[in-house]
Simulated assay, not measured.
Amino acid sequence: MGPATMLLRGFALPYVPELLLAITNIEAASPFRHMVTPGGFTMSVALTNCGALGWTTDRRGYRYTSVDPDTGEPWPMMPTVFARLANEAAAAAGFDGFTPDACLVNRYLPGSRLSLHQDKNERDYAAPIVSVSLGMRATFLFGGDARTDPTVKVPLYHGDVMVWGGADRLRYHGVMPLKDEPHALLGSQRINFTFRKAG
């Protein structure tokens, strides 16, 4: 996929019970919501955040904020298990010392998709992106440095962690529309969360 990209199959499986409890607590404080892009498009993926910073979008643009715009309160603190998983997965992929300050938590339902995009609202491109998949299988699209570059289709399963950084940090990526193939634990949904060094 790339010189600085690694897919860690099943890496998150030992953490799953703690992760699901943590997600429930995050959702209670900052519920999932369908954000609107600057172009007026309502995202099919529901989103919330945890950590010192949270990613948000509206008609004014894409950005990170320290406060949840829906609640007026700081985003929930990043759970210890989240930070530990992010650090250990990054180290396994060759990125030692990764300490994220933002985690985007996405909930996909059947038909949800994520169009090709770059993660470029962060200040620190030296840090990797660590992406964790739970629940239904997804087909991840991993492209090049231009939106028109060919993409590789990567199946992602419950417990998989994908890490990319370095020369691959700004590659375009997305998710194809999710098929309704219920997962034994999470049913007809996929939870994906991505760790970043945003500030």
Rank of each mutant, 00 (worst) to 15 (best):
N121R: 03
N121V: 03
R123Y: 13
D124L: 05
D124M: 02
A126N: 14
A126H: 12
I129L: 15
S131N: 12
V132R: 10
V132I: 15
S133F: 00
L134W: 06
M136D: 05
M136L: 06
M136R: 07
R137F: 00
T139D: 15
L141E: 15
L141I: 06
F142E: 06
F142P: 02
F142M: 12
G143H: 09
G144D: 09
D145Y: 01
R147D: 06
T148V: 13
T148L: 05
D149Y: 04
D149N: 08
T151K: 05
V152I: 08
K153Q: 13
H158S: 08
H158G: 04
D160T: 04
M162D: 01
V163G: 08
V163Y: 06
G165D: 10
A167C: 01
A167N: 01
D168H: 12
D168K: 10
R169L: 09
R171P: 00
Y172I: 04
G174K: 02
G174A: 11
V175R: 14
M176K: 15
P177H: 11
P177C: 13
L178P: 09
D180I: 04
H183A: 08
L186W: 03
S188Q: 14
S188A: 15
N192W: 07
F193W: 11
T194M: 03
K197G: 00
K197A: 13
G199W: 12
